[in-house]
Structure formats: C-alpha cells, structure tokens
C-alpha cells in the first residue's frame, strides 16, 4: 500500500512540480502571482486537441504545436496585460491574472464548447508490475518528462546566456535596465517558458482524465506547492510539487480524501509562521 501511494504521489507531484515551476519562473521575472496558472495548463490541453484532432498533426508536430502555441500565448499575455500594468501593487497584479483566467475560460468554451473532450495521444498506457506494486506507464512517462523538462530548465537557467540575463533581471530590475538588458524581452521569455511548462503539465493531466476547463482546479494545487517550496526558489517549486502530490495520496489513502486540503493548507500556515520564505527559499523581505 505505502509504496503504491508513494509512487502515484510522486508521479502526480511531478506534474504539479512542473506547473509550479512555470509559476515560479513567471513570479521571479515579473513578480506576478499568477492565479491563471491553472488556466494556462488547461490551454495546453486544448492546444493538444487542436493539433491532434482538428489539424490531425502527427505526435511530434503536436508537441511542437503545443510548445509554440503556449509560448506565443505567454508572450501575448505579457505584452497585452502584464506590461501595461507595469509594476503596480500586489493586488491589481493578482486581479489581472484572475481576469485573464475568466477570459481564457470563456474563449475556450466558445471555441471548443463546454463539454469535456477525449484526447488520445500515443503515450504508453500499460502497467508495470514490480512485485506487488503496479505502476501506470502513463504516470511514469509523466514523471520522466516532467523531470526532463525541469532539468532542461535548470540547465538553461544556470548555464545559458539568456538564463543568466533572466537571473540578473530577477535579482535587480533597475540594475538590469541600467546594464542594457532588454528587460521586456527577458520578461516575455519568462512568461513564454512559464506557460509552456504549464502546458506540458496540462497535456499529461488531460491524458489521465478528460480535456476540460475544470482541470484548472487541479492546476491551482501548484499554488500551495510553490509556497511550501519557497516562492523564489526553482528547486523549491519542484520539491513543493512532489510534496503536495505525496500529501494528497497519503492523506486520501490513509485518512479521507476530504482531509487533503487540510493536510496541505495547515502545513502551509505552519511554514508561513516558521519559515515564511518556504522550505527552500532564501530568507528575504518576508518578515515584519
């Protein structure tokens, strides 16, 4: 039982971690606490529907379509909504992402209709049997791909020039502007990457169940993941995601599915009291 819960918890947690990572990338670059992250994830699932069902693209092109689509969407959001607000206070920035998610939801329902859709991508769907543990191949694929994406992102963030610029901008906006970094481009890139990461998570979630705007609620589990891990921390987002996945499975399995929210949000409150900067974040402003 336990090993089974741990496996499925880690698999789900990897998807949450991926979405949470996208969230952190956006937050680090533009200080926007993105309530629309769940909806961006849903957009990924619907991009897959367009590519695979409406356009009939083969699988590799479907992936490319999703990534490009998500990238363009992220850039568009940045230039249309985030940049015009230009560094306003916390709350308007939160609100604009809420407005964004209302708009995205309406647009999706207009294009695809409100009923959930079924999408079959050629991803493995069988079962591995290891002793008495049964692991869904889809779970394993989701976990492996999530980890690859996270690794890729970390390498990009730490080693590439663009990643360096991104880190520099995140550390000091004025300094970055003064040293000639085109901050707009960097921020737009961060939105593009954040949206892409969410979109990949969305593709896996819609394979686990249905393509529907209601997936947004699952995507929103990335929020506590991010906070538990530490808002500014890239590894924190990933580990926070894993932790939320594990808590979800263990709480549902051993106590009651209703207990899930309590077991996620009570530790979150405790962490805010004890280590407001999160388990893996760096100590910063946070305190009074």
């Amino acid at each position: 039982m336990l090993s089974q819960f741990i496996f499925s918890g880690l698999a789900l947690g990897s998807i949450y971690g991926l979405v949470a990572l996208g969230f952190t990338v956006i937050y680090k670059a533009t200080q926007v606490f993105n309530f629309a992250q769940g909806m961006l994830m849903v957009c990924g699932a619907y991009f897959a529907v367009t590519a695979s069902i409406h356009l009939g693209l083969p699988f590799p092109l479907t992936i490319a379509f999703i990534l490009v689509g998500a990238g363009i969407l992220g850039i568009a959001i940045y230039f249309l909504l985030i940049k015009p607000l230009g560094g306003q206070a916390l709350l308007p920035m939160i609100m604009i992402t809420i407005a964004l998610s209302i708009i995205l939801r309406a647009v999706i329902e207009l294009i695809y209709g409100g009923a959930p859709l079924t999408l079959r991508l050629p991803l493995p769907s069988g079962v591995f049997v290891l002793g008495d543990v049964r692991i869904s191949q889809l779970h394993v694929t989701a976990a492996v791909v999530s980890w690859l994406c996270m690794l890729l992102f970390i390498v990009f963030f730490r080693r590439s020039r663009a990643g360096l610029l991104m880190r520099a901008t995140a550390d000091g906006y004025e300094a970055a502007v003064l040293s000639g970094i085109r901050v707009d481009r960097i921020n737009a890139a961060a939105w593009a990457i954040g949206t892409m990461l969410a979109a990949i998570g969305g593709v896996f979630l819609c394979q686990l169940q249905l393509v529907s705007v209601e997936l947004e609620n699952i995507g929103l589990l990335a929020l506590p993941a991010v906070v538990i891990g530490g808002l500014q921390s890239v590894p924190g987002a990933i580990l926070g995601g894993l932790l939320v996945g594990l808590i979800e499975q263990l709480a549902s399995g051993y106590i009651s599915p209703k207990a899930r929210d309590i077991f996620i949000y009570v530790p979150l409150l405790l962490i805010l009291f004890i280590r407001p900067w999160g388990l893996f974040g760096q100590k910063e402003l946070g305190r009074v």
Binding site: F5, L12, I15, L208, E214, I218, Q249, S252
Partner: peptide
C-alpha cells in the same frame, strides 16, 4: 473521493 481529484489510486 473528491470532486477535484487528479487520481483514484487510494
């Protein structure tokens, strides 16, 4: 089970 469940393993 929860309305917003991502998985039914438990």
């Amino acid at each position: 089970i929860k309305v917003v469940a991502a998985d039914a393993t438990p």
